[in-house]
């Protein structure tokens, strides 16, 4: 059974259909990129996958013992986080909350887990740094470490490179690839950039209020829709 199986799912907002006829599956260790224009239903689908929104029709099923709580999530950054006083360690540690049960304070194991994840994203020397004083790329790394602290099974990254410069973008893609390939973490990345999808991920889901394409990245590069959006570079 797949890690995630989506069958004919549709989502509505305020009675209006946002995205429908979704049919795809995510296997263990996949790197799926969901692409589409703004407002094409990407964010809604992410909310559905995270269990924050129930599909209006159809279904989303988790397999291999995955539950919604075991999804690490890298949300789009919010304005209010820019001046937030917190150290990298405090931010990453908060990712381990879902394993805390009813205990009021963090355990040593949780602290160690947080440090491990900080090291994994190459931020160990910045662990006591103030989050608001980091560069955009470093902030995203810290948030990635927090997502990893929450789970080792599945990461959902919502536009992880949205505000990064080209160097930081390349670093971020490299880091995601490493986490996916070497640590066996399944990755679902949302992006408005089809080029990234075709070259970084191994599967692509292209949305435009409905599913335009789902398949492997190499098939996407050869497909009509892929060629159209990639501007012919697939040939």
């Amino acid at each position: 059974m797949s890690l995630i199986q989506v069958n004919n799912a549709a989502f509505r907002y305020d009675g209006k259909e946002v995205v429908s006829e979704l049919n795809f599956e995510v296997e263990h260790c996949d790197y799926l990129c969901i692409v589409g224009e703004n407002g094409s239903g990407k964010s809604t689908l992410v909310k559905g996958l995270l269990g924050l929104k129930t599909p209006y029709s159809g279904s989303i099923t988790f397999g291999e013992g995955l539950t919604a709580r075991q999804i690490g999530y890298l949300p789009q950054q919010k304005e209010s986080q820019r001046d937030f006083p917190a150290s990298v360690q405090e931010v990453v540690l908060s990712g381990t909350l879902n394993s805390m049960g009813i205990r009021p304070f963090y355990t040593r194991a949780q602290r160690n887990n947080a440090l491990t994840q900080i090291e994994r994203v190459g931020m160990l020397q910045h662990k006591n740094a103030a989050f608001r004083e980091l560069s955009g790329g470093q902030q995203q790394r810290a948030l990635l470490a927090r997502a990893l602290a929450a789970t080792q099974k599945l990461l959902i990254l919502d536009e992880p490179i949205a505000s990064l410069d080209p160097v930081a973008t390349a670093d971020m893609y490299h880091l995601i690839e490493e986490i996916n390939k070497h640590h066996g973490v399944t990755v679902i990345m949302v992006s408005h950039d089809p080029h990234a999808a075709a070259h970084e991920a191994n599967h692509v889901l292209h949305l435009e209020h409905q599913q335009l394409f789902f398949g492997t990245a190499s098939d996407y590069r050869k497909s009509d829709i892929g060629k159209r959006f990639l501007g012919g570079e697939g040939r």
Binding site: A68, I71, Y73, P75, S94, L97, N98, Y106
Partner: peptide
């Protein structure tokens, strides 16, 4: 304290992780 930090810093992340 730890939970208040989490929901203060990032509510959508906290909600997503249950």
């Amino acid at each position: 304290y730890p939970r208040l930090f989490a929901v203060t810093f990032d509510e959508s992340f906290s909600r997503a992780t249950g």
